[in-house]
Amino acid sequence: MAKNIVITGGSSGIGVACAEAAVASGHRVALVARSQDKLDQIVAKLGEENAIAVQCDVTKPAEQEAMFEKVLAHFGTIDAVFANAGLGASATGTEHGDVDNFHEMILVNNFAVTVTCKFAIPHLRKTKGQLVLIGSQAGHVALSGSVYSATKWFIRGYAKNLSNELIEHGVRVTSIDPGMVDTPFFDEPKPTALRPEDIGKAFAYIIDLPEHARIAELEIYPTVGAHHS
């Protein structure tokens, strides 16, 4: 059965790959990001019968609330939400890091995710849907002084907390925790890293699980090297 899926951070990288995989599996997607032009191009590629674009700054709760209402008005129901928007570090560690970057990372990687989840929950309770969060291998290891890593430890713990809150309502929560993925997230190509399509396949697998099954946490790493995303 076709599902209606919301994907934040839907204008590039993992978000696009997951949208493509979901549409290939027969689902419909609402792509959410700040760049309307990029979103429109992706929707044109996926087909307007399969996808819609909703411009939204996820750090602004009012815009997220309006986004969910637009998606609901278009699709009628919401069956899955992928809190995928994220931001990386501009420098290594805390001592040499940039305070403005710390603020923006925590705002996007943590605060915005909690807002996405809050507004998603009422819709997902009605459909007994799925809530997927983008974590990282960096949330499984202690990276020296890394604020980015700490934001991903938050995601890992928050996903477990959400699962405890929502499981009695039939809502399944999954954290996808990839190793390094070759996306625009990095300034240079990463030839030994995972590809966005690898995460897309994992996402489609999670979305297509039968209702009696759930994956709490999915770690997916490249086979070459010990890279951290």
Score class of each variant (00 low, 15 high):
residue 128 K to V: 06
residue 68 F to S: 12
residue 39 L to P: 10
residue 186 F to L: 02
residue 89 A to R: 01
residue 13 G to M: 05
residue 7 I to D: 13
residue 116 T to A: 13
residue 188 E to L: 07
residue 224 V to L: 07
residue 140 H to F: 07
residue 221 Y to G: 01
residue 199 I to V: 14
residue 120 A to P: 01
residue 2 A to R: 14
residue 5 I to P: 10
residue 188 E to Y: 03
residue 98 D to K: 15
residue 56 C to F: 03
residue 73 A to H: 05
residue 220 I to P: 02
residue 166 L to M: 09
residue 38 K to M: 09
residue 54 V to H: 04
residue 192 T to H: 15
residue 97 G to Y: 07
residue 25 S to K: 10
residue 196 P to T: 09
residue 44 A to I: 04
residue 130 Q to K: 15
residue 216 A to E: 15
residue 192 T to I: 14
residue 32 V to K: 04
residue 42 I to C: 02
residue 13 G to C: 11
residue 59 T to I: 14
residue 176 I to A: 02
residue 6 V to N: 03
residue 13 G to F: 01
residue 156 R to M: 08
residue 25 S to I: 04
residue 214 R to M: 14
residue 202 A to Q: 01
residue 117 C to F: 03
residue 186 F to N: 09
residue 85 A to M: 08
residue 130 Q to T: 11
residue 89 A to T: 04
residue 156 R to A: 10
residue 35 S to F: 01
residue 65 E to W: 01
residue 125 R to M: 14
residue 100 D to Y: 12
residue 219 E to D: 09
residue 169 H to K: 12
residue 33 A to M: 08
residue 194 L to M: 02
residue 172 R to L: 01
residue 216 A to H: 12
residue 191 P to H: 06
residue 138 A to M: 10
residue 24 A to L: 14
residue 60 K to T: 14
residue 197 E to V: 12
residue 181 V to L: 03
residue 97 G to C: 05
residue 18 C to F: 03
residue 60 K to I: 15
residue 68 F to R: 08
residue 73 A to K: 06
residue 207 I to G: 09
residue 208 D to S: 03
residue 214 R to G: 11
residue 74 H to E: 08
residue 69 E to Y: 04
residue 176 I to K: 02
residue 155 I to M: 13
residue 106 I to L: 12
residue 131 L to Q: 08
residue 29 V to F: 11
residue 142 A to R: 02
residue 141 V to S: 03
residue 145 G to Q: 13
residue 185 F to M: 10
residue 14 I to L: 10
residue 164 N to F: 11
residue 203 F to M: 13
residue 58 V to G: 00
residue 110 N to P: 05
residue 13 G to K: 04
residue 154 F to R: 03
residue 153 W to L: 00
residue 117 C to V: 13
residue 198 D to M: 05
residue 224 V to E: 15
residue 164 N to E: 15
residue 126 K to C: 03
residue 32 V to E: 07
residue 203 F to P: 01
residue 207 I to T: 11
residue 217 E to T: 15
residue 115 V to F: 00
residue 146 S to H: 04
residue 76 G to T: 08
residue 220 I to R: 04
residue 53 A to I: 12
residue 36 Q to L: 07
residue 169 H to I: 12
residue 92 T to G: 00
residue 121 I to A: 13
residue 53 A to S: 15
residue 58 V to H: 08
residue 125 R to D: 07
residue 89 A to Y: 00
residue 74 H to Q: 09
